[in-house]
Amino acid sequence: MKIALVNSYYNPDVIGGAEIIVELLAKGLSEKGHEVKVFCSSPSILDESQDKIHIHRDKIANIYWPPAMVSPGSIQKGIWHLLNLYNPFSAKRIVCYIKEFAPDIIHLHNISIFTSALYSELQKHFSETPIVQTLHDYWHACIKNTLLHGNGDICVNRPGLCSLRSSFIIDKAQVIKKFVSPSLFLKEYYIKESLISKQRIEVIPNALPRLVNKKEQIKEKNQKISFVYIGQLETHKGINVLLEAIRRVKKHSKIEFIFAGKGRLENLVKKEAHIKYLGYISGQEKERILSSGDVLFLPSQWYENYPLVGIEACNHGMAIIGSRIGGIPEIVTDGWNGKLLEPGNANQLTIAIESVTRNDSLLRKWQQNSLKFAEKFNLDTMIDRYLALYRSL
């Protein structure tokens, strides 16, 4: 089967979890004997191969390429966003290259860089080809992709302009035969908002490769307990609440707090003497922190989809203390592999931290169950479910 994977970016241009999942899917499909080609954006046109995966990187028709522009001015940003509302030039270019590949299946992921004009171009040239799209965020519902107001509050009732934009995009997206959501929460959100019918969307959870000898990572009794946060240092991620909770924790020689990431609250984190701040980490450094960590914090105050760092933590045998919001409860089962708390409740966070610190057997139970969760939702299962979906269309 010839499979075209389309995403705004691709390794080494990793913006978020979508790029990681697309790369894992490309490699997994290729290993199963399928011919895979990835189509993505770049500051210049480039055709290359990585691990037997063919990649076409295409230059977008806009005034700059976002990953390469560190601090665009307000005028530049305004022009870029105006052109990015509906950009047939970028869409036409990438579809020309997809036509040359002549795929049996087209699988879209994040396509915001190509805009909804991509749907129109695909309808013109691939009306008979099955097209699938995995939803990694709220792009179809929110121009910011996040459902967040400027002050960090969740947007519950989408304003008129957002609704008009959503209707326009969804109308163009009729070419999609099936949408895939990594979480049940995201699926139900799109159905509730009447953006996608329940017949056109199904859930396939994100997954990661199995780790070798991962059960050896469960710590023995009386070793120091490492609490870890990895992610954006922003208000909607619950950083302010987490810092308040940590300040309330009774100091104990068994506890250490490790933070990694960047964001507008970075200076607040740096001021906390009892927090070891690592800055932004990735690759082997991130793996090292996860493999040595005991408990991961997911204190979000917004509608997380299916946070990949939560899957990574389970894969490394970490317990998770997280918020009961969005797709987090689909990774964390309260009392089984971690603790779920009300979003924004610092007192509950403090109690959860101290409870784990006092109860070694509870911590080990949660860690073992996280490993069981990771084993159940593994990468092979994810790839097989996508292949089954392709064949059903």
Rank of each mutant, 00 (worst) to 15 (best):
K221P: 09
I275F: 11
K219P: 06
E272H: 07
R248H: 15
E266Y: 05
I230Q: 02
V203L: 07
H236A: 12
L242T: 01
G231T: 06
K276R: 09
I196N: 00
R247M: 10
K237C: 09
K224E: 08
K250I: 07
R210Q: 13
G238N: 04
K237G: 07
R264A: 06
R264W: 04
R210Y: 10
K221W: 06
A245Y: 03
V212G: 02
K215I: 01
K215A: 15
H236E: 15
N206C: 14
K250N: 09
Y277K: 02
G261T: 01
I196S: 00
N240I: 05
N206Y: 10
G263F: 03
G231L: 11
G238E: 04
I255H: 01
R200Q: 15
V249F: 03
K270T: 07
S226D: 13
L242R: 04
K262T: 14
K215M: 02
A273D: 14
F257N: 01
V212R: 14
L243F: 14
K214V: 15
K237V: 08
K271M: 07
V228W: 12
L268V: 01
K221F: 13
E220K: 11
A273K: 12
L211T: 05
K271E: 15
H274A: 12
L278P: 09
I225V: 13
Q217P: 00
Q232T: 08
G238M: 00
H252L: 00
I196D: 00
K276F: 08
I275T: 13
S253K: 14
E244V: 01
A273W: 04
R264T: 09
F227D: 08
L233M: 14
L243K: 05
Y277S: 00
K219R: 14
I201K: 02
Y229E: 10
K219V: 11
R247N: 14
S197D: 10
S226G: 04
K254M: 04
K276A: 11
E220M: 12
V269Y: 05
E256Y: 05
E216D: 12
E272N: 08
I255G: 00
R264L: 04
H236K: 05
V241K: 15
P209N: 06
S226M: 15
K262S: 15
S253W: 14
K254I: 08
K250E: 14
K251R: 14
K215T: 10
R210L: 11
L278N: 15
Q223G: 06
H274C: 14
E216H: 05
N222A: 11
Q217H: 09
S226F: 07
K219H: 15
I258E: 02
G263D: 04
E193N: 04
N206D: 11
V228K: 13
K219M: 12
E234C: 12
F259W: 03
N213Y: 04
E202V: 09
E266I: 03
K262F: 07
R248I: 01
K270P: 04
E272W: 06
L195H: 01
A260F: 13
F259V: 07
T235W: 14
P205A: 10
L211Q: 10
G263H: 08
F259S: 02
I275H: 10
